[in-house]
Design a binder for these strands. Sequence first.
RNA 1: GGGCGGAUGGCGGAACUGGUAAACGCGCGGGAUUUAGGAUCCCGUCCCGAAAGGGUUGGAGGUUCGACUCCUCUUCCGCCCACCA
Length: 812
Amino acid sequence: MPYPFQEIESKWQARWDETCAFRAVPGGGPKFYLLEMFPYPSGRIHMGHVRNYTIGDVAARFKRAQGFSVLHPMGFDAFGQPAENAAIKQGVDPEAWTLRCIDWMRKELKRMGLSYDWDREVVTCLPDYYRWNQWIFLKMFERGLATQAAAPVNWCSGCETTLANEEVIDGACWRCKQPVALRQLKQWFLKITDYAEPLLNDLEKLTHWPQPVRTMQQNWIGRSEGVEIDFRIEGTKETLTVFTTRPDTIFGATYVVAAPEHPLVSKLLAGRPEGEKLRVFAERAARASTQERLAAGEKKEGVFTGLTAVNPVNGEKIPIWAADYVLMGYGTGAIMAVPAHDQRDFLFAQAHGLPVRMVIAPPDLPRRGSGTWTEAYEGEGTQVNSRQFDGLPNSEGKVKIAAWMEAQKMGRRTVQWRLRDWLISRQRYWGTPIPMIHCGACGVVPVPAEQLPVVLPEKAPITGEGGSPLAKVEPFVRAACPKCKQPARRETDTMATFFDSSWYFLRYCSPKAVDGPFDPKEAAFWMPVDQYIGGIEHAILHLLYSRFFTKFLKDLGLLKIEEPFDRLLTQGMVLKAGEVMSKSRGNVVDPDSVIAAYGADTLRLFILFAAPPEDSLEWNDSGIEGISRFLNRVWGLLEKLPDPKAPAADPAADAELLKLTHRTIKRVTGDLESFKFNTAIAALMELRNGQEKLLPGASGQAARESVERTVRMLGPLAPHLSEELWERLEHSGGLTRVPWPKADPALTAESEVTLVLQVNGKVRSRLTVPAGADPKQVERQALADPAVQKWLEGKKPKKVIQVPGRLINLVV
RNA sequence: GGGCGGAUGGCGGAACUGGUAAACGCGCGGGAUUUAGGAUCCCGUCCCGAAAGGGUUGGAGGUUCGACUCCUCUUCCGCCCACCA
């Protein structure tokens, strides 16, 4: 008979609800803000959620037991495409659909026994939240951080609408299967690039973040130092500026390449036959999807423009090409090509018969030969064919040539960033309306802050066809210009949902604030988030945007901190048979069915036990039996308790039981602090196994001490069962505020240690000595050991290595 | 192509700072209990060998008294990014 988990779990969940057991209240201990990434309310929780929220919940309960005043909130990232797609496919109202999903998911989360302060719930699709999206947007606009620019979107001419990248399948629309084209559209951008420098530099402060995440962000921001060089275009007054990180190779430039869509080149070619050729090429390049570019591989397509550039360092005239391997979006949209020292340039030069000139001699030049190369040499070497710089190591040449060019006004040193501005416009219904008004006379005018929120209108025609739904809601679109009061039109784009999730952690500090997005005093108290937990897939975008918002809000004077998240744990994925669990693969294991069969405590423990949090987790149905057995054995502890006044039948058992108990406290405490839940659970299993043997001989007092401490340690992991046992052990008031047990150092100390005796690094014997025994004495005992003597074969050891408390190695 | 990470029994995993490889659990084998099944409890379980002993952390080398752990090369797998000048 398994323990009555259903009854116990619903009893305690109800009690926690009634007593608001997990309300975050300042005071009564140092603050600890523990946050897990909030879910998109798709309707069902999946194992990834279970894992994420269990890890967070154990940490939250552990911190409470350690005396912290814990803020542990939950909410819903409720705007987004799935609701809109449900509206398109089933004709449901996105809001009703979303709120229904939220209700269901909240219920499921409660069934997991997660200790949230539900009073602080945040739902991003409600006006009391998204009005502050609009407010923050207006502040950004005021400071020039929100700007409009043309950008390409995926356009389906069949549906006459914009598509997200994931809706473009093999270059075709997911709904009507027609080919998708790129179309330029004026859209809103946030100038995150203004914050590139602090976003990069402050990564150094995030010492409690996993190194891979910091590296990924660093690469994403991508700072590179280089030189902008001006190439005069022959026969014109124009200059083509290129960017290079390798000024040391400037004397090896044999041609120049511009991006196909480079505006200067198309301007110069207007009306000429090459212009038409270029236009066709640029269009093809723009239409090519990433996949096609990948398929094209190293073909390096390009067209000669007929134009000639003059290399400023030597006056050499070299051709200007346009090629798709140069990107308009990076640097200046043009490069100097040095085929000898850049593999991409090399391949292009080969394909189009362009010359190759070595200017960096490799150290092993004689072996390579200076004649025809089969690939570019990108390594270090000595400057050659570089006039006054010949003979310098190229590392030095790099610095000197850059300085010289700058002095000669041929170019200037600059820094380039890989980071792009953040496009937030979406031609969608289910998102925050961008609070802007387009006036024929005044241009783009912000909605005055006191008119917020700009409420998303109900009953918009959401068909997935014919452009943005909001544009079709005339009463919404029609507005008076805030400046001149003349009729004007509202912006009909909505915000990307990443905007919503870039500051939700601040809203939790004061979820009902009406004077601003959050109360600065509350945020000053709770922020930063002490521990953030979520999937590795958010390692770049979400975390970077949240860091950006935090820095911006600090500049507004609303925050005092530079960084939002102090510690970060990125949890691995949940797999089934080596594959990600997903609906499309049809390999999902439904958490609800596991809870029904085994209970939430068993599910929680199993998912923690199966793998360390950062690793991917292989779901295996059979393993759950072991956890279920363990919890049943813990339940059975109550029956094994002797009479409280009973003396010890076996005094040795008493001592051993207490020793085991306190050693387990030490292990479990350390493991929980470092998120090693799997070994913490293993330690508790060992304790329970030991109790099986030791409880019958123990005194009533020792037995009770051991069992009560076991229950307290299990509290954060299996909260329902632990609460029930705690109550049955005749304690009132619940387990939540009961302090975490402390290990008694007198009981955890070892009195004896067993040393391993090695001869030539091989284990030959063991030796038990008192802890802290004299090394000389230990060595003598080791040498006297019969097994050791046998292996020494009468020889004297050359060397004796003793690691106190661990081993002795005798080398002969 | 680039970046990041990983590989330990039949399986999930453990191993402190370089110091007894395989803790804990699953599975499997055996036993006890039971009319039977289930549940529960106990014992065993990396490989070879009768034993003594030997071998073993994807593979090949290296450093060290000693390597799952550090270094070099290599194979395979996963994730992210995609020609970043």
